[in-house]
Design a binder for these strands. Structure first.
Length: 248
DNA sequence: AACGCCGCCAACCGCCTGCAA
DNA sequence: CTTGCAGGCGGTTGGCGGCGT
């Protein structure tokens, strides 16, 4: 029943890894692989470390494809965009960044990006023609669209994806035509900012489709929306339709 | 020079899930 | 079906270095 215990934590070394330990672990994995068993690895390699610690050290620091150094603006955008939409699923976010680990991304978010976003005041409040703010919804350069439901995705040729969304926001009455035009104008600039971020996160329509839980491609190439959910829920539901192009 | 504060980040902790026994 | 370990993950911590006083 069950498996043998992981390790005796009172007998393993803890704390920072020495260069010698790094060398032993690196050489062992390069010569023998992980053997599919991290718990047994330290004993085989001659390390007085817990298997979990070895795994973490390899994945976060010693792997040959690890990308070291600061994050680029593009990477920041991807992280910010994905965080807004899927939350703190660091492993998922890291999978969109070549050579970055979940720990890297998490640390970067907690130490830099979180503050960067919270101090960013270049948000755009949607206003109607009579300059009445549609409170409390705000769009910032780092968020996608709030509370939105995707009605339809359609690929009109090999590279262009058109989508229409049912926009939802908090307002007592439905929008008049004139207000709708104003909203359309304001949304356009907001959408333009966010398209870039979304495009970074999902370079192709297939990237986005695979990310979406219920994304299904039919025989005609139409991407059928199931329970697509962009994540951010701020406003209440009303009626508005918006169309644009995402992947050009 | 000494001290304290603060930011960064490697590493640990604890929980959850999958799966072998 | 039950048990309990391995692996994976996100949250948190603690040590270190830089900077200001």
């Amino acid at each position: 029943m069950g498996r043998s215990p992981c390790c005796d934590k009172t007998k393993v070394k803890r704390g920072p890894w020495s260069p010698e330990e790094d060398t032993i672990l690196r050489n062992h994995i390069q010569n023998h692989g992980t053997g599919g068993n991290w718990i047994a690895l330290p004993h085989k390699a001659g390390l007085k470390r817990c298997g979990k610690s070895c795994r973490l050290r390899w994945l976060n620091y010693l792997r040959p494809d690890i990308k070291l150094g600061g994050f680029t603006e593009e990477e920041d955008d991807i992280i910010s965009s994905l965080f807004v939409n899927i939350g703190s699923r660091w492993s998922v976010i890291a999978s969109h960044l070549q050579g970055r680990t979940d720990n890297d991304v998490k640390n970067h978010w907690n130490t830099k990006l979180k503050k960067k976003l919270s101090t960013s005041h270049n948000s755009t409040t949607i206003k109607t023609n009579n300059e009445t703010s549609i409170s409390p919804i705000q769009f910032t350069s780092s968020t996608f669209l709030p509370k939105q439901e995707v009605d339809r995705y359609q690929i009109t040729n090999n590279s262009v994806l058109e989508y229409s969304m049912k926009m939802n926001y908090q307002q007592e009455s439905t929008i008049s035509n004139s207000n709708s035009n104003s909203f359309n104008s304001n949304m356009s600039s907001s959408l333009q900012e966010n398209q870039g971020l979304l495009h970074n996160a999902f370079p192709t329509r297939n990237d986005y489709a695979s990310w979406c839980d219920n994304g299904v491609m039919d025989l005609d190439g139409d991407l059928l929306a199931g329970d697509f959910d962009f994540g951010q829920v701020i406003g209440e539901v009303s009626n508005f339709n918006y169309s644009s192009q995402l992947w050009l």
